[in-house]
Design a protein around this nucleic acid. Structure first.
Lengths: 199, 199
DNA sequence: GTTAACGGAGTGAACATTCATTCCTATCCG
DNA sequence: CGGATAGGAATGAATGTTCACTCCGTTAAC
């Protein structure tokens, strides 16, 4: 029974309640009850509700990034890398619906909007995997020569929409369908060339 | 000066406040002040806050659908119809950022989720333009043979993401870029055939 | 025995909604 | 035409509720 035991319980309870009822349908008293702790105890681990939600976001996002990074190699051809990342991402979102629903809510709230604004400002210093991939893709003419946000929209837009449909039960996404969908995304992004196997 | 003058003021004030501060940063008192009416007046036009928000959503969605329907002809080839609808949609979202931001918030809230669930249930009786287009597209082999929700995700996912990037200032979407983006969407959806001009 | 962790009733602020009252306008009467 | 009056529209102070957060008595740890 580590010190962080209760902390985890609180994080977990927040996640479940926020996913089910939204930020506003998850009062601190309810979180405390679900976590099996007193209302005051939450404030031993988190300064306030805001800090709790931000901590939850950080944990969820870290796990996601770790999953994508693991097993990724930037030695492979552009297409293969793209398919790999997108497939991993979609599979992860589909198999972790709680995380996915939470991230959706978070990004579509005042938290997420200010976070986006931050990202614009420190644009240059966060070199993430996808930025590199898109820039290389354009340089090698494997991808269309469009602004990075457009390529990102073409890649992630469909994946997010698919994950949403799946978690809401509108669509049964199995492995075969995931692959077909990701390949369709690639068709939208790839440049107009005869062969792209060695790009 | 019609009877609905104040009603419009209230709707407008709600829209602006909700877009700027979210559902929860828009208390009735603030809406009343912005609309230039007394707090109680709102309740002469709307039963409660919930009804107000639903009415706002209905108005916004009606305008959007009217825009898309206007000038659309289901006589034209599949590709042309697809490009037309997507271009109109994206242009509309870009030029009406308040409506767009509101719809985003609405769909990512408890309102939107229950609305989606409703849509699943009465699946069969809402024959909208896009459903018809996708079904014809598959039948004529102009589009990939994928489940309708997947085609919808491939088409709308990127458009929504682009509109969001634009309203947040991450990207300047001019007419040329809109067309390129919509054509890239089409590349993701179209079937693998030599010529699709006459489908 | 001392210190840190915990619990949950209590507190005050914020909020949606109500309702007694005022305001406005149109109709009618002299 | 001027003034009275009715009745719907509008108002905003008051109300009751919900909620994040605090405080202090109790419990567990060592």
């Amino acid at each position: 029974m580590k010190k962080s035991d209760k902390r985890d319980d609180i994080i977990r309870a927040s996640l479940e309640l926020i996913v089910e009822h939204g930020f506003h349908g998850a009062p601190m008293a309810m979180i405390a009850e679900k976590a099996g702790v007193g209302a005051g105890t939450i404030y031993r681990y988190f300064e306030n509700k805001d800090a709790l939600i931000k901590a939850l976001h950080r944990e969820v996002e870290e796990k996601l990034i770790a999953t994508l990074t693991e097993g990724y190699s930037d030695e492979k051809p552009i297409r293969e890398r793209f398919i790999y990342l997108c497939t991993m991402l979609l599979k992860y979102l589909v198999s972790h619906p709680l995380y996915f629903r939470f991230l959706e809510q978070y990004y579509n709230s005042p938290y997420g909007v200010s976070l986006r604004r931050d990202k614009i400002l420190r644009k240059s210093d966060n070199r993430d995997i996808f930025t590199d991939l898109f820039e290389q893709g354009i340089a090698r003419q494997a991808m269309k020569d469009l602004p990075l946000p457009v390529l990102a929209a073409l890649a992630f837009g469909p994946l997010i929409a698919l994950a949403r449909d799946h978690t809401l039960g509108l669509l049964e996404l199995d492995d075969a369908l995931i692959i077909k969908s990701v390949e369709a995304c690639w068709d939208g992004i790839k440049g107009n060339v005869y062969a792209d196997e060695f790009k």
